[in-house]
């Protein structure tokens, strides 16, 4: 028996919008810790890891660990039928091949339930160890989105370099080149507008802009984004989900032949 009641149902809608273009099918895992997902894109270049902690739900009942395979496009179709202010409850029964999404309007005058077929998915989980990163950049998520979008009109890849000067995003394409440098800036009105650069050592890595642009679909989930870089690891692009957890995207770098 599974019953998860999320008062801020729009969070789940936003999570689906952030993941459905990257991953087609995924197993949602439910345990005492929370509602989570780990899935790679079809080319095994990018990975999404989601955690919505159990404490963030108004009601969280998960009698035993359960994994539910869902087609994210179909799940998105169903969640789009929920209003932005609706409370969403996810319900499942042991051994059932369906999951039910219940939507309640804020004043309880409309209650809908949508039953979706589950699917068997052979998921490949990767072990992601805790790591020390060479540099961690925290910046407004809208700024990161803007940079990725702007650069992708010039080139296909971006070199992200962190030095003590700041973080530089560079691209080149047929029409020319572009460089955007963001310096640390803590003198802002609100903390989420700050750009904070923690650098243990300089680092420079190349990534496909197509994936970074896909990650920025999570921008509505958080005012700020954290980009963690290490020369030996995939980049981590993390959006914190207030009071609940996070959505993290991992992207393997381009490697010089």
């Amino acid at each position: 028996m599974l019953e998860l009641r999320l008062v801020q149902g729009s969070l789940l809608k936003k999570v689906l919008e952030a993941t459905k273009d990257l991953v087609t099918d995924a197993n949602f895992d439910c345990s005492a810790t929370g509602f989570s997902l780990q899935a790679m894109d079809s080319s095994h270049v990018a990975l999404v890891a989601l955690l919505l902690r159990s404490e963030g739900f108004e009601h969280y009942r998960c009698d035993r660990n359960i994994s539910m395979g869902m087609n994210l496009n179909n799940m998105s179709k169903m969640l789009k039928c929920a209003g932005n202010d609706d409370i969403i409850t996810i319900k499942g029964d042991d051994g059932s091949d369906t999951v039910t999404f219940m939507f309640e309007s804020p004043n309880q005058d409309k209650i809908s339930d949508f039953e979706m077929k589950l699917m068997d998915i052979d998921s490949e989980h990767l072990g992601i160890p805790e790591a020390e990163y060479h540099a961690i950049v925290k910046m407004p998520s809208s700024e990161f989105q803007r940079i990725c979008k702007d650069l992708s009109s010039i080139g296909d890849t971006v070199v992200i370099s962190v030095t003590k000067e700041g973080v530089k995003f560079s691209t080149r394409g047929d029409i020319g080149t572009a460089n955007i440098v963001c310096r640390q800036n803590k003198t802002v009105d609100k903390p989420e507008e700050a750009t904070i650069i923690e650098m243990n050592e300089p680092v420079s890595l190349t990534f496909a802009l197509r994936y970074l642009n896909s990650f920025t679909k999570a921008t509505p989930l958080s005012e700020s984004v954290t980009v963690s870089l290490s020369s030996e690891l995939p980049v981590v692009v993390e959006y914190k989900i207030a009071d609940m957890g996070y959505i993290r995207f991992y992207l393997a770098p381009k490697i010089e032949d």
Binding site: H44, L126, G127, P129, L233, P234, A252, I255
Partner: peptide, 14 residues
Amino acid sequence: KASQGRLESFFKPV
């Protein structure tokens, strides 16, 4: 020319 890395080169399956 740079080639695209794969996640399995960095993380092991569990």
